[in-house]
């Protein structure tokens, strides 16, 4: 056998292996995307069938009475997430600024580590913690305790993403501000932070998306309610909780409503994710020019 023939034979084998690898990768990619599309498609089909105007605008009906909606849960979701943001955003953002400015040394490293650990804590454990510090001592469930749990879930995400957002601003912008005699803090808050704004808004949207569908921490904090409830000191209806309760109920019309609620949640997260993507691409464009 000549050398050329030998090399040709190896080449054929290598080429075959190459194609095999690509085919395998493609197959897995289709599998992953297919699973996601199947879930989405099923939720959309079931949800759209069950959703209607009453569902969005009415209170839940008692068992056995057909119709009714989740208006109180939708409003409750907004209230609880807004309160959670009010707690988590200032702390998360300022911690992110601190890490971006004084990023080296034992204290920042410890903060990053703690924040990574916190982001890995199961949400039900965080719910239990909220129960232990806010529900048990006060002897009643409350929307505020749910906001507290959500804030704890958002916090590590906000810390790391806002640090990244601030770091993504070119050093030249920061130095330009410092060279004009601005203080470190003013250069960061007045110049660097606004430059990073689209990326920071992206971080906020992703943080909201992160907690929108969370149910476990709500079970023993917000607890749920059949009525209009706007007072954060009382138990409150939450959409994710209603989906949970309706889904495990034996009544077909409640099960249908669970699908409609799931559809709303998926749609909300979808909109938030797409919005985050758009903001991020805007941020990238802004930094390039």
């Amino acid at each position: 056998m000549t050398v050329a023939a030998l090399r040709y034979g190896r080449l054929k084998r290598r080429r075959a292996y190459g194609w095999l690898g690509i085919a395998l990768a493609l197959f897995c990619a289709v599998l992953a995307a297919g699973a996601l599309l199947a879930i989405l498609g099923y939720v959309v089909v079931q949800g759209v069938a069950a959703i209607n105007w009453d569902f969005l605008t009415q209170l839940p009906h008692p068992i056995g009475v057909p119709g009714g909606g989740v208006a109180n849960g939708i409003v409750g979701t907004f209230i609880i997430i807004a309160t959670a943001m009010a707690i988590a955003v200032p702390i998360g953002l300022l911690t992110g600024i601190y890490l971006a400015l004084f990023g080296r040394g034992p204290i920042p490293e410890a903060l990053r580590f703690l924040s990574d650990v916190l982001s890995g804590v199961p949400s039900i454990a965080i719910g239990l913690f909220a129960y232990a510090v806010l529900v048990a001592p006060l002897k009643h469930f409350s929307a505020f305790s749910a906001s507290f749990a959500f804030a704890m879930l958002m916090l590590p995400l906000l810390v790391r993403t806002s640090e990244q957002a601030i770091r993504s601003v070119p050093q030249t912008v920061r130095e330009g501000a410092l060279a004009l005699g601005m203080s470190n803090f003013r250069a960061t808050v007045g110049i660097v932070l606004p430059t990073a704004r689209p990326a920071i808004i992206t971080a906020l949207l992703l943080a909201i998306a992160r907690v929108t569908g969370e149910t476990a921490p709500l079970l023993f904090t917000a607890f749920g309610s059949q009525y209009w409830e706007l007072n954060p000191n009382n138990p409150m209806a939450v959409l994710a909780l209603q989906v949970f309760n309706y889904a495990i109920s034996p009544y077909p019309n409640w099960q249908a409503q669970a699908w409609a609620g799931a559809f709303l949640l998926v749609a909300a997260v979808f909109v938030l994710s797409v919005g985050a993507r758009l903001m991020l691409s805007r941020a990238m464009r802004g930094l390039e020019s």
């Binding site: 030249t172 330009g176 005699g181 430059t195 802004g286």
Partner: peptide, 16 residues
């Protein structure tokens, strides 16, 4: 830095 101003190699106007 107020008494000694600086212009950098690449233009760095504040983008916002």
């Amino acid at each position: 830095r107020r008494r000694i101003g600086m212009v950098f190699q690449r233009p760095n106007p504040f983008p916002t």
